[in-house]
Structures are given as C-alpha cells and as structure tokens.
Design a protein around this nucleic acid. Structure first.
Length: 418
RNA sequence: GCCGGGGUGGGGUAAUGGUAUCCUUGGGGACUGUGGAUCCCUUGAACCGGGUUCGAUUCCCGGUCCCGGCCCCA
C-alpha cells in the first residue's frame, strides 16, 4: 500500500463539489470587480523566493536540484511570481493592472489544523496605483470573495505599518535594522524591543510611544490617536470609503505588523474566529516589491487568502451547498432496449441534461436503488413495452409518480419538471 | 524542530496474550417490469519495523501517518 505524503490531502467527489463551488464563487467575484486571472507555474527558480523572503525560508521550501543542475523550488506563495511576471511581461500594460490567481502552494511545515504542506491560495494585486480607493478596492475584494462563499463569521482588521516604519526610520534606525525591530513588536516582545531600541540610541520616550501604538485598536474614533498626520488622514479617508461601499464591522489596529519587510503603508488581516490556532484566513497590504526584483518602483496593493481555511470555517458554520445530482437515470429492460437507451441518453446529454444510465445490466429494482443513491431526480424506464409504443416510463424519484411519455417529448418533460 | 492524544475491513465499531464482533457500504441472488422494500449469500481489516513471549491485534521500544497545540508564518 502506498501512503499519501504527509500534509497532503485527497479530495473525494463530495468535497470536490464543495471546493469547486467555492472557488467559482470567488473567481466570479474577482471577475466582477474587474480583476483578470493569471496562472503561473507551480515551481520556479529557488532564488525568486529567497530574494523575496531571505535565505532563511529555504528550510521551509520544497527545494530541489533539477537534472540540469538548477536549484528549483515549489512555490510557497504566489506574490513573488506575480512580480516576476509583471516585470518580465506586463510592465507596459495600462495601469492599474488588476490581477488575481488561484492555485496550490507548498511549504515544508508541520501539519496541524488549517495547515498543510500542499494548500491552496487565492490572491489578487492591483499594480500601479497608490490611492486610498485602491486599498479600499483590494480590501473590498478580499471581504467579498470570502462572503461569496457564504462564510458569515470573520473579522477584518486594518492597520498602517507605515507609521511604525517611519517612526523607526526617523529615530535613526538603519533600513536594514527596521524589520528586526518590527519583528520584535509583532511578537509583543517588549523587553526585546526596548533593548533593541536603546542599543540603537532611541530615547525611552520614543520607545514608549512606539509600544503604545500597539494599543491603538478599535473603531474609527481611535484614528485620532494615530501619531502621524499623513497616516491619520489616509486612514480616515479609507474609513469613509469602506463605509460607503458597505463594509462594516471592521476595526483599526495599528499593532498589525505583517511579517515581511516590503509592506509600506496599509496592511490588513482577516480572521475566522472559529478556526482555532490557525485562524487567519487572509492577509494583505500595500507594498513595493518590485525594486528588489529589478524593476522600477511601482506601488502595489494585494492580498493572499487561505482557500482551505475558508472551507474549514464554512464547514464549522455547517454551511451546505446542494450538489447538482442527475436529472435522469435511464434503465433499459431487456436486450432490445439497450441501444435505444443509449441513444436516448446521448440525445438528452446533448440537450444539456445531466444523465446517466445502467452500465451493469442490473434488474429494475437494483437499478432504482442505484438511481436513488445517485441522487437522480427521475428514473426513465425503457423496456419492450415502451419500445413498441415509442414511449418511456418516467418515474419521479421523490414522489414515486410514474407517467408514460412519448420518446420525442422526454426533453420537454424533463425541462418542465426541474 | 518541540509537546499532547490517537491508528482494528471503504466508513463506523466490539472484544481479546491463542489471528477478530456488530452496523454500514460494495458485489451477487431470491426476482420473469416498479419490491428505492425484505430476506439470503459474498468481497473486504489489526500502520510499519524491532523486542518480550511457545504464541502479539493486544504488552514494550523506534519509526510513520492522523488529530490538536507550541514555534514559525511569505
């Protein structure tokens, strides 16, 4: 027996129905927002990812040498690829460029709830625009894709990493050290941060001010306490737009520090509280990653969404979608009916009905049982009796009512009894 | 990388130091056109390796995988 690799999953028919449904809801939402889909390779040269995230991530990648001696890696996320693609082939496209993508990603991690080695992400970016409405559009898409799946219970928090970033910079911290400081704040490591700051010659007063930023969280009113006028104005403007487009119940949280260096302004996170330890379903913000990849500076706002986590959260809310089932299951009785049955099947399929028929030459009662378990709406019985009169017997699988219908009229009969 | 709890047919389970119960599912039959039922038959299982033992599914150790948590989180 073969075992599935650790941290991967098989998706059976029922689960796949659910996944495809959710995926198409999200995809349609993005298209409705004017985003266009791209698809990029599942593996890339290793350096694409180390350039973005540092050498340290190699431990957490599926990295390998190919037969040509090149170092490659399965993608752990897709943002770096989008940047590569943009610089190589899309940089002269009209701005703003609104792109989205969906696909599997891979990380060598220890599996737990909501955490797998192969997982699926949906992401979107707006490239080349830098206005509050750009940020609002991205957040709005993130929220809408999640809501489009029927998920009710989630929490949006919006922050502004630019405030801390500029405070650290103004205090004279080198660019190369800023992310270290942010990281300490992210972990709520006050002692560590104080030590880091005093080493860099920052006054205690300033340190206290920076630490207090983390306490700024709540509704619009907390924006008065934002120390930077630019950031305050920006967030107030954003807040007004969010209200206009109907996004409610979000909070501001100046304590959000997204792990990576490249976020520069607005940042946001969406949690699904019923998920347990791995409850973040979406994260994003505005950044400029492109110079690091060898392009001109272009502002971008984007997000990545954990598709699997959304589905787990949906399951916990006991959300159910109805799977399509069969419009008809066709049962031939006797040798002579078999070919007529297949002819009818083919005709109905060409008319767009979801139709299946008996492949195992079973008797009527077993066939009805099978039709029932396959979720067929009707069973169509075609035997010698019917053949001689050019009809078929259509049995409603819910009510049990039966009716003899001329072969030519079956299409209309099925169409009129949805 | 670390910690806790687990692993018996496809799914769900029972008992047990002497190779395994029941339910469900799958296949077939009774059965010659309505029995989506019922009854009968049937396929199918101890995660892997080592140890203790006359004998291990059971006890011990290691690995592996699953569930959950820590770390990390692009």
């Amino acid at each position: 027996m073969f075992q599935r690799p650790r941290g991967t999953r098989d998706f059976g028919p029922e689960e796949m129905t659910r996944r495809r449904w959710a995926e198409s809801q999200m995809r349609n939402t993005a298209i409705g927002f004017g985003f266009r889909e791209i698809q990029l390779p599942t593996f890339e040269g290793l350096d694409l990812f180390t350039t973005k995230s540092g050498q340290g991530i190699v431990d957490e990648l599926y990295a390998f040498e190919d037969k040509g001696g090149r170092m490659m890696a399965l993608r752990p996320e897709m943002t770096a690829q989008v940047m590569r693609f943009y610089i190589a082939e899309m940089s002269v496209q009209p701005k703003p460029l609104k792109l989205f993508y969906f696909g599997p990603c891979f990380r060598y991690e220890n599996p737990q709830s909501g955490r797998f080695r192969e997982f699926f992400q949906l992401g979107a970016e707006i490239i080349g625009s830098r206005t509050p409405e750009t940020d609002a559009e991205v957040i709005s898409l993130a929220v809408s894709t999640i809501e489009s799946t029927g998920l009710k219970n989630c929490r949006l928090r919006i922050g502004y990493i630019g405030v801390l970033r500029s405070m650290l910079a103004n205090a004279g911290i080198l660019d190369s050290k800023i992310s270290e400081g942010l990281h300490l704040l992210d972990k709520n490591d006050e002692k560590g941060f104080s030590a880091f700051a005093s080493e860099a010659g920052i006054s205690e007063e300033k340190v206290a001010e920076m630490l207090s930023l983390r306490g700024i969280g709540g509704g619009e009113e907390v924006l008065d306490r934002v120390p930077s006028d630019d950031a305050k104005k920006y967030l107030q403007e954003l807040s007004g737009m969010m209200k206009k487009i109907g996004i409610r119940g979000f909070e501001f949280d100046l304590g959000i520090v997204r792990g990576l260096d490249y976020y520069s302004g607005m940042v946001f996170e969406i949690d699904a509280p019923n998920l347990g330890a791995e409850k973040q379903v979406c994260g994003g913000g505005s950044y400029s990653l492109i110079p690091a990849f060898g392009g001109e500076e272009v502002f971008t706002t984007g997000f990545a969404l954990g598709f699997d986590r959304v589905l787990i959260a949906l399951e916990k809310e006991e959300f159910e979608i109805q799977s399509p089932g069969l419009d008809a299951f066709i049962i031939p009785l006797g040798e002579e009916a078999r070919e007529s049955c297949m002819e009818l099947v083919s005709r109905l399929r060409k008319s767009g009905f979801i139709v299946d028929f008996d492949l195992m030459r079973r008797n009527l009662s077993k066939n009805l049982k099978y039709a029932s378990s396959a979720g067929a709406k009707t069973a169509i019985i075609l035997g010698t009796k019917e053949l001689s009169s050019g009809t078929a017997t259509i049995r409603d699988m819910v009510t049990g009512d039966q009716k003899e219908v001329p072969l030519d009229s079956i299409r209309d009969f099925l169409g009129s009894n949805p």
